[in-house]
């Protein structure tokens, strides 16, 4: 069979065709398969201690990414719904809400996350659960504004050009219009796209913040309770050497073999991170193209 035809046929119901012809699904599959491949590869070439450290770092990073997605979607939803149904009826609440949002979006995300480390260092118990949840909360807070803007933008679109006012004027409850008609029936692809982007950004920012803190000024302040993330692994001296070794490849392309076996710890941590980011980018792009989401 010609591959080109396989990629182009839309009306065939076969799952494989569907996955191949849709960029978002293609990359989702590639992401999962790639991840499995890394795990198997690393299980073979890394020593047991390093492998379990790497695996747990990936798990912890993704777990935080997922929690951050769930929490930030909830925050954004609460903000948008509150604005629409509650705050707009009260001047002071309204002003307070906008000032809060103003602050949230005027502090760069990485700064919010670094500030979030303060209580972890100085005030919290070393319980991994509390620390993980707190970190997810901080991450989510830094993305809450994006979700809020997405949702209120969707509401505005259906208000200006759409069914929102038509339904409202027929006496249909606003909460139903927003939750069911605007969000569930009309915004799912937008929110899924947002979730993919937030997941990737969370992974990226978390890794960077952990890297900064681990490599930075006060190594004595490492978080004793929290499992390491990809960022912590990248900041270790071994990983650093592994990554420095990439340069050898420019002089001797065959050095690639060494990179993928002896220098595996740093390389695989770095690659897992970059691979996640690229996959998320492509999945999001595919989704935007396929569902024709507005830029």
């Amino acid at each position: 069979m010609r591959i080109k035809t396989a990629l182009n046929i839309n009306n065939s119901k076969s799952l494989l065709n569907k996955v191949l012809s849709r960029k978002d699904l293609r990359w989702s599959a590639l992401f999962v398969l790639g991840l499995l491949f890394f795990i198997i590869w690393n299980a073979i070439f890394l020593n047991d201690a390093a492998f379990s450290k790497w695996l747990s770092a990936i798990a912890q990073t993704y777990l935080l990414g997922l929690l951050s997605v769930i929490l930030s979607l909830s925050f954004g939803w609460i903000f948008a719904l509150g604005e629409e149904l509650l705050f707009s009826e009260n001047k002071f609440l309204n002003a307070g809400f906008y000032l809060f949002i103003d602050l949230l979006k005027s502090i760069p995300q990485i700064v919010i996350i670094l500030l979030g480390y303060i209580p972890l260092f100085f005030y919290f118990d070393n319980s991994p659960l509390v620390q993980t949840l707190w970190l997810a909360f901080v991450l989510a807070l830094s993305f809450a504004n994006d979700v809020y803007e997405e949702i209120s933008n969707r509401i505005a679109v259906s208000k200006n050009y759409g069914f929102y006012n038509a339904m409202l004027a027929l006496g249909i409850k606003e909460s139903r219009i927003i939750n069911r008609d605007v969000l569930l029936l009309n915004s799912a692809p937008y929110l899924i796209n947002r979730a993919v982007v937030i997941f990737a950004s969370s992974v990226f920012l978390l890794t960077s913040a952990d890297f900064i803190v681990s490599v930075g000024l006060a190594p004595q302040l490492t978080l004793s309770g929290l499992p390491a993330t990809l960022g912590n692994i990248l900041a270790t001296a071994t990983s650093k050497e592994d990554i420095l070794a990439i340069r050898e490849i420019f002089a001797d392309p065959l050095y690639l073999k060494e990179l993928l076996t002896t220098h595996l710890q740093g390389i695989s941590a770095a690659f897992a991170l970059v691979f996640t980011l690229i996959s998320a980018y492509e999945i999001s792009n595919g989704l935007v193209e396929r569902k024709k989401l507005n830029a």
Partner: peptide, 11 residues
Amino acid sequence: FSPAYLIGYVF
């Protein structure tokens, strides 16, 4: 798509 510090290390 690499974080700056990876590229920074490599170069």
